[in-house]
Design a protein around this nucleic acid. Structure first.
Lengths: 115, 115
DNA sequence: CAATTATTTCCATTAAACATGAAATATGGA
DNA sequence: TCCATATTTCATGTTTAATGGAAATAATTG
């Protein structure tokens, strides 16, 4: 993953509303959510949300698809995975003795995951 | 990890020089690096670097310790681990079927790590 | 085609972040 | 104590990002 891509993803996520939006879309999973649904769920203005969705999309963290009158948004898990991979790579960065403890302690704590 | 803490960490890392600095400190490991070493290694001005080190420190991503005339900086791996944990948690967010593939594909690719 | 709903774009204003030069502080050595 | 080194702090000008109102675009329905 290129550094500028990483910077873009981090900057996109480093924002109160955008982090909420992204987390909501991750939770929504493959079904995604319409812009309007997101707006009412988070109780934010439509145009501000639209701007922030544009930022997230430009960063590659979400994608969109028109569905009738609505536009549905989806979290891009591949990008998320790549971002986490990059950050983890940094953690290790030539020093295996640092890497392993980090990986060992990171686990997924949702129901059903036993990583 | 609290949301504001996460936002602070993301914002701190979402900056060209700061990402470089943090990565350098991660690579340096427990030995850390003096501010001056960082500055000459990355070829940046001392005061700009100092400002950015302050930002990273405020975000909890690095810590510092005076050592004679120099001040030595260290990456805070606990914070990094917590950040990665939070982001991964988001990945899963109530949907185990999304979580596992993400974890499966994230590996440490430095020599010596077999996660 | 007019009306309605969903979302985006445009624009102006405000606020925040950034890099920089210059001055200040702290430490160690002559 | 005086000087050199290492780093930080301060003040400032500039750039960038965020917000929200109003208008525009797109799709559906009557």
């Amino acid at each position: 993953m290129e550094k500028n891509t990483v910077l873009g993803s981090l900057a996109a996520l480093a924002h109160d509303m955008r982090l909420d939006v992204f987390r909501l879309l991750v939770k929504a999973g493959p079904d995604g959510m319409a812009a309007g649904e997101i707006a009412s769920m988070l109780d934010v203005r439509a145009n501000t949300l639209s701007n922030n969705l544009t930022v997230l999309a430009a960063a590659g963290l979400v994608r969109s698809a028109r569905e009738g009158r609505s536009i549905r948004y989806f979290a891009n898990m591949d990008r998320m995975r790549a971002l986490l991979g990059f950050l983890l790579e940094d953690c290790c960065g030539g020093r295996p003795e640092i890497c392993q403890p980090v990986l060992d302690q990171i686990t997924c704590n949702c129901r059903g995951c036993h990583a």
